[in-house]
Each structure stands twice: as C-alpha cells, then as structure tokens.
C-alpha cells in the first residue's frame, strides 16, 4: 500500500472513530456533568422539605430560563433507603409536580387538577420496592398510594407554583416550599 492510500485509510478510520467518540461523549455527559440540576441540588438530599430554586421574579437563580411568574422548588431524592413519599397541598394557585430522573428525562408529571381534596400524594419507588410493597400488602386492603416507578435511583421532584399576578408571588413561594419529600419506612 502506498503512503497516500495509508493516509486515506487512516483518515477514514479517524472519522468513524470520531463518530463513536461523539456518541459516547453525548451519552456520558449526563453522568459526568457537574452543573446539572441534580448535582447542584445534591446538598438538599437529606432535607424533608422542598427548597426554592427560583422564586418568582428572582434574577439571581442559576436556573436557565426561569419563568418570572413561577416559584420553582425541588427535592433531590435517592431511593437507596426506601421509597420517597411526596406530599403537596394545593391551593388557589396553579401547581404542578414532576419527577425527573437524574440523568435526564421527565418520567412523571401531574397538575393540581389531579389533586384529591386539595392533596397530591405520590410514592416514588424502584421496581424492586414496588414488588416488595405489592408482596407484603394485604390483598383485602390494597394501598391507596399513587405509586410511581422511578427509572433511576436518583432524581428530582420538581414543584412549580404559578403566581399569575405579582401580588401572589410570596404565596406561590410559600406553597412551593411546603412540599414534603420523606423516606417511607413501613
């Protein structure tokens, strides 16, 4: 093979390899990122209450494109110690709740329309924890919990409360702060 042919072959190989490196990098970014929402909120893993990430009209938040009319709060969770029970009380303001797996993807979202008597209660668990809960359950008295299977062991509960008028901002912030995320030990 001439040097020129070898060079061409090497270049073709380089491009194929570059494609593989590109895909591997894109897939690895969520696992390696240090500025993603979960990593920034890792410190709040042990708290039982949601913490405000962006208050309405807040200019200082790290969250990109925050809605100036929305109070956004989060609970970071890990399912290692058991399922996580999320409970929110809904009020007059629009409120929505979503569950985000750590490496991306919203796997559940619900609005206050689905609340029963002003309460939104969810239990987030792994597939295995769900199987255990089903196995230990009394078949005559099934649990009324809304059980959501998380595709990852770590993730975020995200609460959004909308202040449609600026006068509702503090009310929205209080409502967003009042969501509890506790480890369910039964």
């Amino acid at each position: 093979m001439t040097l020129r042919a070898q060079f061409l072959l090497a270049t073709i190989c380089a491009f194929v390899l570059a494609g593989i490196v590109h895909l591997a990098t894109v897939l690895a970014i969520p696992h390696l990122a240090e500025k993603d929402a979960f990593s920034r909120l890792r410190a709040t893993l042990s708290t039982d209450r949601s913490e405000i990430v962006a208050a309405p009209g807040d200019q200082g938040t790290w969250l990109p494109y925050p809605d100036p009319g929305v109070a956004l709060s989060t609970c970071a969770y890990t399912l290692d110690e058991g399922p996580v029970r999320v409970s929110a009380r809904t009020g007059a303001l629009f409120q929505s709740l979503s569950l985000h797996a750590r490496t991306g993807g919203v796997f559940f979202a619900i609005t206050d329309r689905a609340a029963i008597r002003g309460a939104l209660d969810l239990v987030v668990m792994t597939r295995r924890q769900l199987d255990e809960a089903l196995a230990s359950e009394d078949p005559d008295e099934p649990s009324r919990d809304v059980r959501i299977v998380s595709p990852a062991r770590e993730g975020l509960v995200v609460v959004r409360v909308l202040a449609i008028f600026p006068s509702q901002r503090s009310e929205a912030t209080e409502a967003a702060k009042a969501v509890s995320c506790t480890i369910d030990r039964e």
């Binding site: 500025k35 993603d36 929402a37 920034r40 990430v53 790290w62 969250l63 990109p64 494109y65 956004l72 989060t74 929505s96 979503s98 985000h100 919203v106 559940f108 979202a109 619900i110 609005t111 975020l156 995200v158 959004r160």
Partner: peptide
C-alpha cells in the same frame, strides 16, 4: 442545569 417542563405540566 435546565429543568424541562414535563409533558403533563
């Protein structure tokens, strides 16, 4: 660090 809005929201 973006937190997307869920489809149901």
């Amino acid at each position: 660090g973006g937190i997307p809005l869920g489809v149901g929201e």
